[in-house]
């Protein structure tokens, strides 16, 4: 059977939606003034610390700004796309872009899969201690990446590390996780999944609980087994949630920085250097123009990938 044979009942409106009715006229005298008094503090801080830097960052990315221009950020030479060309033809930046792509392309689907599995297990599989498991699985999310990276560096040590010790119980000789070019990136991905799947799980749980029970019941009466019910009813209804979690996870992973900074410093042999980390390094060398061009490249990639995810996941099925 397919989902299209099921008549979807109209959503029950529990109460009239609390949307403010359009108030006639241009409001009370003094309303505009009061509104601006409320708006001014945020607006000033927002213009100074968000809008202005975003604009100046774009300007800088087309100039040869260096650290020595710190005091006079506008008396610099305009060099067109020079910084972008330099970034894109820099083999280390290319390596960083490839590493970031690896981290996102492998890390995001795995994180989503673990999050969805955990959510389904907690929603359908168990009835007791649900809150305890939910809390436990979510705990890594709230911790500082720097702190967990320090801890994981020990866990992943080749000889005295916890992971290889556990593997040795099963007769497996674990690799030198962070010291091996082949294993360094998978190690960071493993840690990222561990730290981040809790967020997706919570959101998937909320999405699963919004799937109407009557729909599941109707399908069960029609003879659909558990797997069919999940695949044809739950999964399509979960699509908006899936879109949301995949977009937010991908945006976060595209900027990964703390993990390589603390665990590998980008090594071995640049195998874990990320775009954000290399941008930070360029800033450290004083190449402000190049750093801002790189940051805009990251921004463009984030925007493009978000748009693609909307395309692929939104209007299907």
């Amino acid at each position: 059977m397919s989902a299209s044979t099921i008549a979807v009942p109209p959503r029950m409106e529990a109460a009239p939606s609390p949307v403010a009715p359009a108030r006639p006229g241009r409001g009370r005298p003094g309303e505009g003034r009061a509104a601006w008094i409320l708006a001014i503090p945020f607006t000033l801080l927002f213009l100074a610390f968000t809008v202005w830097p975003v604009a100046q960052s774009l300007f800088m990315s087309f100039t040869d700004t260096k650290q020595k221009d710190l005091r006079t950020p506008f008396s610099v030479n305009f060099i067109g796309l020079g910084n972008y060309v330099r970034a894109l033809s820099d083999p280390v930046f290319q390596r960083a872009a490839a590493n970031t792509a690896y981290f996102v392309v492998v890390g995001v689907p795995l994180t989503l899969a673990v999050a969805l599995l955990a959510a389904v297990a907690l929603d359908k599989g168990i009835t007791r201690f649900r809150a305890v498991f939910r809390l436990g699985f979510y705990t890594p999310v709230i911790t500082s990446i720097v702190a967990v990276a320090v801890v994981w560096r020990f866990i992943l040590q080749p000889d005295a590390g916890l992971l290889n010790t556990v593997l040795s119980w099963f007769g497996i000789q674990g690799p030198n996780w962070l010291g091996d070019v082949q294993w360094s990136m998978p190690s960071l991905i493993l840690m990222a999944i561990w730290r981040n799947f809790g967020t997706g799980m919570i959101i998937f749980l909320a999405g699963l609980q919004a799937v109407p029970y009557s729909l599941q019941e109707a399908a069960a009466i029609d003879g659909a087994n558990t797997w069919q019910r999940f695949w044809h009813i739950t999964f399509p209804l979960l699509r908006p949630t899936l879109l949301f979690v995949s977009v937010t996870t991908a945006i976060g992973y595209l900027q990964f920085f703390e993990e390589p900074f603390v665990m590998t410093q980008g090594g071995p042999l640049n195998s874990t250097i990320s775009m954000s980390m290399y941008t930070y390094n360029q800033f450290g060398y004083g190449n402000y123009g190049v750093a801002t061009a790189m940051s805009y490249l990251i921004f463009v990639v984030i925007a493009v990938i978000t748009a693609i995810q909307f395309r692929v996941l939104r209007e299907k099925a």
Binding site: R23, A39, T50, P53, V54, S57, P73
Partner: peptide, 30 residues
Amino acid sequence: LNFPGKRVLLLLVLATLMIPGVVTFVPLFV
């Protein structure tokens, strides 16, 4: 509330919602 400039301000806030910190940190440092 209704006030002049409301739409522009709202659009500006929504537009910057997704901008990553890595984009702003260099000029912010300056």
